[in-house]
Structures are given as structure tokens and as C-alpha cells.
Design a protein around this nucleic acid. Structure first.
Lengths: 245, 245
DNA sequence: GGCGCCCAATGCGTATACAATAAGGGGATC
DNA sequence: GATCCCCTTATTGTATACGCATTGGGCGCC
């Protein structure tokens, strides 16, 4: 039946010739990144609903593929999947925010000595370039880009430790941090000061693992301190706790 | 269609007549646990293939649901999804094994001081019970059960820190550790000595966070030392590296 | 006039059908 | 007799169709 539709008209004018398996995986990966980036860059704000139909139409794949991607995002806690209500961008709670920063404190700081040991000249160059691009984005007022670059910087740093497992954890924590910034951040204050990352690189370049560790700890504490982490309780006022029900 | 198969065999209570959405989620969760447990208990060994058809028949749900579960397991790195070859139980590499233990070293040890601070009498009781069951299983020669209980102990311990995010990480690391034991473990040596966990509980009960941390570090090092972490290279002899091609 | 119930529509959950690919076996040829 | 190629088969990837729950609005009743 759809052999007919196959040649003439993709019906929805949706892209072309999909159904091809070969590039299906890449396509899905690209879609995943699109959505993930949009969330991290705050172009999709916490609470935003992500309807499967709409996404499938936008990206030109069927709901099946979208669902797969949405599930992956849900497992990374970037989107929340409520049983019959569909997907929406996760709105982190205050508790989660604290947990994420405690976790970053432990893992990222713990990784610094190893990074300081392993870092090479090429790595230093790369990190400097990333920090530079980040500073540029900040100066240009492109908050979205700056946020993404900052997360990428922290993630790349973790990768330099040589432990891919922990680096993956850090990556997830950074993504979630971006979400947390969107909810609890104050406008104009991005968390990561632009010079901080450069200072950090200097410690690492000098092989000063303990210095880098201490600096990272301070850096993360500053980011966390710049937030206003208070429960907003906008949509689900807990009547039980209010009236002692 | 599948009503036919319906009468024959309740198998696990009521299997079919799904399509009911309400309990679908629970059912999927149960299936997920079944497979996950089977892997952790080494009833499914690394490298074992997990065909979608077979699983869908066994559990009485369609391939759609199985795929979802398989993807979740893949994201947790318990199964490996190769593009056109389907799913199989992950066979961790030696590098991954080292990474996992390094990660556990960092996170689990780092959590001990907080756990020692927060632990209560009821928690101590619960942990002792778990350790006791574990010892029993070991004595009865039920390796599968002992492995699962040991992982559960470490995971519960992490939960007591109050940081659910890090606890989830630890849970994933423990699951992967179980896989690592299956590949690199020596028979008869289970890794976790039976008395170790009891000793650890004593440190925590006494509020000695640093002591618990040091003990945990030693404990993990012993487990890692009991393994024979060498690449096996069974199925893909790298001819290039052998012949210098 | 307000409150509660019912109906319709939207959108997710599941199953099934179809297409494509990779692997393995058999046959033919050199 | 061995090797290479093609064909068959088994298994995944994707799309679509159908069913059900939930939600929002309209209507009737109190």
C-alpha cells in the first residue's frame, strides 16, 4: 500500500526517502541532539510540553522514533514523562538542584588531580579555545550559546581524566545544571564567571592538581550561591501540607 | 489472535490481556526487573543474545514494549545494542572494569562521611539484616543471590546519604560491577567478603565517617584485586594489531 | 446562578504489518 | 575438491492503525 506513496509523494512532504535504515540511526542521533541542545540552551524552557505528534511532524519521522528519543531524554532527566500526559521539559526541584551540585562537587573536584596529571599541551590549547569562545559568547550577549559552551567545557574537562564513565556522569550533571540555571538562576548572572575557566586551566597546566581541585570547588560553590534555590510550588500547592490534612 | 494463547498458561499470574494501559507501566517495570535481575545474578551471562521475538513471547508483550525495555537497559549499559544485530548482555572491557571501580572508589568513599552523619538506628538494623541475608546466601552456596544482595547493600548504603542522584549513579555502577564479576571474577571468590559489610556497618554506627571511608576504600580495592582483569579478546582477534597491518 | 455531570476531542500506549539488511547455507563453476 | 556468489532466512527498524484514558467545554439540574 505504501509502495505507491513511496515514489510519488511523501504525503506530508516530510523530508525524503526516510525509512532508509542506514541513516536512521544518525538521523535519530541528530534529532536527539537538536532537542537536547534546545533544552540546554533554554530555547525550550522547563515545563514546556513536548507533544509527540508535533515533534514527529517537525523532524519528519514517525512517533515511534520520537518516542525512543523522548525516552532517552527522560532517562537523562532532561524531560519528564508523565504516564498519560506526555513529555515535558523537566523542572528540577530545589532538592534535585542541591543534589546535582553536591554531586558535581564530589565528582568534578575529585577528578581534578587526575586531569592535572594527564593533561597535555594540546588539551590546554583546546580548553583555552573553548573558554575563549565562551567569553566571546558572553560578551555578545548570547546567553544560550554561553550556557552550552560552559557545560561543554566542564564535560570536556572530565573527559580528560581518562575515565569515560565518570565523564559521562559529569556530562549528565552539567545538562541538568543547565536546567537548574533556567529555573533558579537570576537573569544576567550566568553562574560561570568568564575568567574562572581560564584560571582553572592555569592550575591544570601547572600540574597543580590540588590547586585545581580547590579552585573547582570554589567555582562550583559560587555558581550554586548565585542561584535562588527556593521551591516555587507554582502548579501543585500541596494542600495536605498546608492544612495538615 | 493472541486470545488463543491466553487460556493455556497463566505463567506468571495474568500475562496477556494487556493493551490495558493502566498496568502496562507496572508490567514493563516488572519485565525490566526480571531481565535486569537475571543479568545481575549471572543467569544471563555476558555475550548472551537477547532476541526481541523470544523476549516478547516469554513475557507476553509485543516487541514494542520489549524494545523500550532493551533501550533502557542499553542506556544503563547492562546490554549492548548493536545496530542490526540486536541486543546482547554487555561484556565489559578491561578498561571499563577499571573505570567502574575507580568511579566507585570516588563516589562510594566520598559518600561515607555523609552516611555516617545521617544514619539512624533503623537504618543500621536494615543494613545488618541485608548483610545477614547476604552471608546466608553465601553459606548456602547461592552465588546468584549473594551477588544481587551485595549490590543491593552498596546501593542502599548510597541512598542513605540522602543524595538520590549519586545513589542512582552508585546503583548503576554496582550493576555493572556485577557484570564485571561475571567476566573477570575467579570462581569461588565473590569479591565481597561476608564479614566486610558488617565491619563497615560498625564504623557507620559509631559515626566514624573517616573510618568508614577508609574501610570502604580498602573493601573496594580488595574486590578489584580479586579479579583477573585482562582483555580476553575472544571473538574479535584484532588481526591488525597482531600482524601490524 | 452555580455546581456537577456528560460528551467529545486530543493525544498517548500498544500491537501489528511491512521493508530492509546481514548472515549463513547451498549450488555451480573453475 | 575448493572457492565464490547468490539466494534464502531470520531478525531488526520503522511506520501506521487502533484503543483507551484524560481533559476541557457545554448543558442540564438543583
Amino acid at each position: 500500500m505504501n509502495q505507491l506513496a513511496d515514489r510519488g509523494e511523501p504525503t506530508k512532504g516530510r523530508s525524503r526517502r526516510l525509512g532508509k535504515n542506514g541513516d536512521g540511526a544518525e538521523r535519530h542521533e541528530a534529532i536527539y541532539r537538536s532537542i537536547s541542545d534546545a533544552i540546554i540552551e533554554h530555547r525550550l524552557k522547563p515545563g514546556a510540553r513536548l507533544r509527540e505528534d508535533a515533534l514527529s511532524e517537525v523532524f519528519g519521522v514517525s512517533r515511534t522514533g520520537i518516542r525512543k528519543i523522548l525516552q532517552r531524554l527522560a532517562l537523562e532527566q532532561l524531560v519528564t514523562l508523565t504516564p498519560r500526559r506526555g513529555a515535558s521539559v523537566t523542572r528540577p526541584t530545589a532538592d534535585e538542584a542541591r543534589e546535582v551540585f553536591d554531586a558535581r562537587q564530589m565528582i568534578e573536584c575529585g577528578l581534578m588531580p587526575e586531569v592535572a596529571k594527564r593533561i597535555g599541551a594540546a588539551d590546554v590549547q583546546e580548553l583555552r579555545a573553548m573558554a575563549s569562545r565562551e567569553r566571546e559568547a558572553l560578551r555578545a550577549g548570547e546567553q544560550s550559546t554561553a550556557i552550552k559552551l560552559s557545560a561543554a567545557f566542564h564535560e570536556r574537562l572530565a573527559e580528560l581524566s581518562g575515565n569515560a564513565t565518570l565523564a559521562a556522569f559529569v556530562g549528565r550533571l552539567c545538562s541538568r545544571s543547565s536546567l537548574i540555571l533556567a529555573v533558579y538562576g537570576n537573569p544576567g548572572n550566568l553562574g560561570c564567571e568568564s575568567h574562572d575557566h581560564d584560571d582553572l586551566i592555569r592550575y591544570l597546566e601547572a600540574g597543580d592538581g590540588e590547586g585545581a581541585k580547590a579552585f573547582m570547588s570554589h567555582h562550583l560553590k559560587e555558581i550554586e550561591a548565585s542561584l535562588s534555590i527556593v521551591e516555587e510550588e507554582a502548579e501543585a500547592p500541596d494542600l495536605h501540607s498546608i492544612f495538615g490534612g
